[in-house]
Amino acid sequence: MTIQNLLGIELPVIQAPMVGVQGHALAVAVSNAGGLGSLPCAMLSSEALRKELEALTSQTSKPYNVNFFCHTPPEPDADAERHWREALSPYFDELGIDSNNVSAQAGRAPFSSEAADVLADFKPPVVSFHFGLPAPELMARIRGWGGKILSTATTVDEALWLEAQGVDAIIAQGLEAGGHRGFFLSRDISAQVGTFALIPQMVNAVKIPVIAAGGIADSRGVQAAMALGAAGAQIGTAYLLCPEAQTKAVHRAALKSEASRVTALTNLFSGGAARGIVNRIMRELGPMSSKVPAFPLASSAIAPLRAKAEAEGSGDFSPLWAGQNVSGCKEVSAAVLTRELAGVSQ
């Protein structure tokens, strides 16, 4: 089954939900163009979620996706937080920031009954998850209004687990993908493989549609993924330069520079492994550090460094999320890009 049939869309393209660099405007543009626009909701309060959904649904009558995280919030660890702040202390001093005034806040929350209450008023046609799935009763609420459920898998084992839980389709996230790894059964990086190695293995292992994600930047990539059995493709990085995205100036500049050729998995910005363009703090501390608190607790200490540096035009402390293939990034409307990705002539 193609994702067009499953999700009621015209084109086999899903815009990846990208926390921190987009709101409803990008999702609206993609949905109206015939793809599946996605709204990232992991950092939205119930009030903000409602406002975004009101704006989204007032501007499109097409199917859309809302995306949530399903991580288990860790217990705060005072020693881990202290070690992390000590590692960052030279940067606090350099930028004139008093680390004692930095509050500890997680920033990202898992899907909850409160969020489901808001969704129930809108009945989104597609709800997707990262880091596994929520409790069965929350999934039952989504199914109750006819919503389709998608979730990310980074290994065949994760795909089989998701299929057993009754999801409607699986997003196969290859190692090339930008942003956070969606793994949940194992966080062993050595078990993570590239998209075009993962797709055929996953397609052979499960009976439900598999959606390819990671390293796909143009229509050739979409076609290649579907030739290997994928039902469609989810694409994020290519949309980062679109005017409808909220990508910050330092991030846009990095994407257009030669620096974008070098990305790495890093846990420095949130505590979870995520792929981004290598910048100063990743080079100096190493992209993966044992001093970082558990996801998502690392984000609070580094946030003031990011804010101060960005105000001065620097991305030295910013999560410059990007996949390994930025060749598809274009400063064109998301509608034009969506149709190009699907191989549809304008």
Score class of each variant (00 low, 15 high):
I3C: 10
N5R: 14
L6M: 05
L7K: 13
I14E: 00
G23D: 15
A29W: 00
V30R: 02
G35K: 01
C41G: 11
A42H: 05
M43N: 09
E47R: 09
A48D: 14
S58K: 12
N67V: 05
C70M: 04
H71Q: 07
H71A: 06
A78S: 11
R85S: 12
L88P: 12
G107M: 14
R108A: 15
V126F: 14
V127S: 02
V127L: 10
F131K: 02
A140L: 06
R141I: 06
L150C: 13
L150M: 08
S151W: 01
E158D: 01
E158C: 07
E163R: 03
Q165H: 15
G166Q: 06
V167M: 10
I170E: 00
L175Q: 02
E176R: 04
T195S: 03
P200V: 11
P200L: 13
I216W: 02
S219Q: 15
S219C: 15
A225D: 00
H251E: 11
A259F: 03
S260R: 07
N267G: 11
N267W: 08
N267V: 04
G272Y: 11
A274G: 10
R275H: 05
I277Y: 00
P287K: 07
V292D: 02
P293A: 08
P293H: 06
A294M: 13
A298K: 08
A298L: 05
A307S: 14
F317E: 06
C329E: 04
V344N: 07
